[in-house]
Amino acid sequence: MVGAMEIYMLLPKTNCKKCGLPTCMAFAVGLLGREKKIDECPPLIEEKKYEAKLKKLHEVMAPLENASETGLIIHPEKCFGCGNCVVACPVNVAAEPTRCAVGLGPEGDKVILRVQDGVVLANNLKECRRFGPNKILCNACTATCPSKAIEFV
């Protein structure tokens, strides 16, 4: 997964502040956290000399664009469908105490993670503990994954 430094290297590195942030590094962090968008950097878009960098930046940012609001990315091709994340996710456990909490697949639609067609699927991401102003860095789903099929950016 791409890091802030890698993104920074593809920015103008002039600290022109046109994006509203004091430095290009701050803008890189903003991009990574998906609080900023690439087109909020005017020089990069307007000046021809940054064309190659812009193209590369779009490439490295592409996987992040598929990430949900919480930064959750699922790689279904790597998933075993084991349901470890379904059973470990605290939101799932609270939503289905007689199902997910004891190892069974969910019945209702309140859960975040479920296994569908052999692979994990995410819904209701607004319920994820990584979302919103009181977010915490819960990693129950990634820590219990045997194949790195789930990650957070």
Partner: peptide, 24 residues
Amino acid sequence: EDIELVLKTGAISEAKNLCRKGQG
């Protein structure tokens, strides 16, 4: 025992809770 399947001619159109091995 908690597998929910929807079958349509020629394929499993939906499989809930089935792992990759079971799916295969």
